[in-house]
């Protein structure tokens, strides 16, 4: 579809894409547009933006089919490397996880584990799974957003990376006990992917954490 006629309200400027709010009645929508990078050769830039837009859109579609909760795609404007998706009205998990009650946090962590489980069982890696990329609507059922780094993968290393990044963001910016929060995430994850796959992914996550260099990123 042609996204050039939409009325765009700036929402966020990321490293790779600009996000805007708009309306596509009856929906309130988010318009994600990968912008031209002046440093990149024009031809290279165009092919990267196109390729990534398609890749992100297909990851979103596959994750949806697998049963994960995430925004729905309403339109694609490949020519302008733009994805139009439903706006999720809620709060960012990062800003609220510290202040919620213990019982609600426990159920949130388990549910996050299940959500990641849906992705991985469908062979998708999120690639940037932090509490900044999780939105909690009024009913507190988490939505995962920003599939800009997502890709197809059935590699335990990639699944471990997702779990490790989530775990790191839980303990780095939140006053959570690492062992018990990981246990909750692992419980939900195991429910979806099964014992065998959960074991390999979780083992990889622990291994990545031990390599240490990822901890330096904090």
């Amino acid at each position: 579809m042609d996204s050039s006629t939409l009325d765009l309200q700036p929402l966020h400027r990321g490293a790779e894409a600009d996000l805007f709010l708009s309306r596509l009645p009856p929906w309130k929508v988010v318009v994600k547009r990968r912008v031209r990078k002046a440093y990149r050769h024009e031809q290279l830039d165009a092919s990267i933006r196109k390729e990534r837009t398609i890749k992100e859109a297909s990851a979103i579609r596959d994750a949806k089919i697998a049963g994960a909760r995430l925004p729905s795609i309403l339109g694609l404007d490949i020519e302008r490397s733009t994805i139009i998706m439903t706006f999720i009205d809620g709060v960012v998990a990062r800003d609220t996880i510290d202040t919620m009650s213990n019982a609600r946090r426990v159920s949130l962590l388990e549910e996050l584990g299940r959500q990641v489980g849906f992705l991985h069982s469908a062979g998708i890696m999120h690639g940037d799974l932090t509490t900044s990329n999780i939105i909690l609507p009024a009913d507190e059922k988490p939505f995962m957003i920003d599939f800009g780094m997502a890709r197809k993968s059935t590699d335990h290393e990639d699944h471990g990376t997702d779990l490790h990044l989530l775990q790191r963001s839980l303990i780095a910016t939140h006053a959570l006990d690492p062992t018990s929060s990981l246990k909750r995430v692992a419980k939900g994850y195991r429910e979806i992917v099964g014992e065998k796959m959960a074991k390999s992914s979780l083992r990889k996550a622990a291994e990545i954490a031990r390599r240490g260099r990822y901890f330096a990123i904090r």
Partner: peptide
């Protein structure tokens, strides 16, 4: 040059935003 430098520039851009 175009491809390898652009890769690094992108990584730098992401790190700069973070």
């Amino acid at each position: 040059q175009e491809v390898s430098f652009a890769m690094l520039a992108e990584a730098v851009e992401r790190s700069l935003v973070q």
